[in-house]
């Protein structure tokens, strides 16, 4: 359940996510190295997921509609589609679109966490597990050319 005690932390998370999305665009800072950029996406997905889970936990709900589980899987795929280099490299050239794409990660993260947690109490943790794992693995070299080429 979302308790009063958690509210400041969630607030801090929102501020951190907003800063991560807006500050580089506002200051015109370029992208970090590829691996770090993937981790940035993972952070946005994760942060969004935490918020989605916290929202569901405000009140008890009925659980067990499998549609929420299917939605979780689909949103996971959506998160990966947002990272497809063809799409990403096109968007990357326009700071506004790039910023929007980052907002997109946070939104997908939010709904992923929401959907997973709606399926069953505390099953949102599975969404966070997926997000962290995909983030960590993409950071090891997704979309990176081989050395010396």
């Amino acid at each position: 359940m979302m308790t009063r005690r958690n509210v400041p932390w969630l607030g801090l998370l929102v501020v951190a996510m907003a800063a991560d999305i807006l500050v580089p665009a506002a200051l015109g800072i370029g992208d970090p190295p590829l691996g770090l950029h993937h981790l940035e996406h993972a952070f946005l997905l994760f942060g969004g997921g935490v918020l989605g889970i916290a929202y569901v936990r405000r009140s008890p709900r009925e659980w067990g509609d499998p549609l929420w589980l299917f939605a979780t899987i689909l949103l996971g795929a959506a998160g990966l589609v947002l990272m497809v280099p063809e799409l990403y490299s096109r968007v990357d050239a326009y700071p506004v679109l790039h910023t929007l794409l980052h907002v997109g990660f946070a939104v997908v993260g939010y709904f992923g966490g929401y959907a997973a947690e709606r399926y069953s109490p505390r099953s949102g943790i599975a969404w966070l597990l997926m997000v962290v794992m995909t983030g960590a693995l993409t950071a090891t070299g997704f979309g990176a050319p081989p050395p010396g080429v």
Partner: peptide, 27 residues
């Protein structure tokens, strides 16, 4: 879940290469 996450990234990277020959992959 960890394994499927890895598998998904693997397949997405390969599908990326399948759709566009320029997609960089480190062997």
């Amino acid at each position: 879940i960890l394994t499927v996450s890895a598998g998904t990234i693997l397949v997405i990277a390969l599908l990326g290469r399948w759709a566009s020959p320029n997609f960089p992959i480190d062997p």
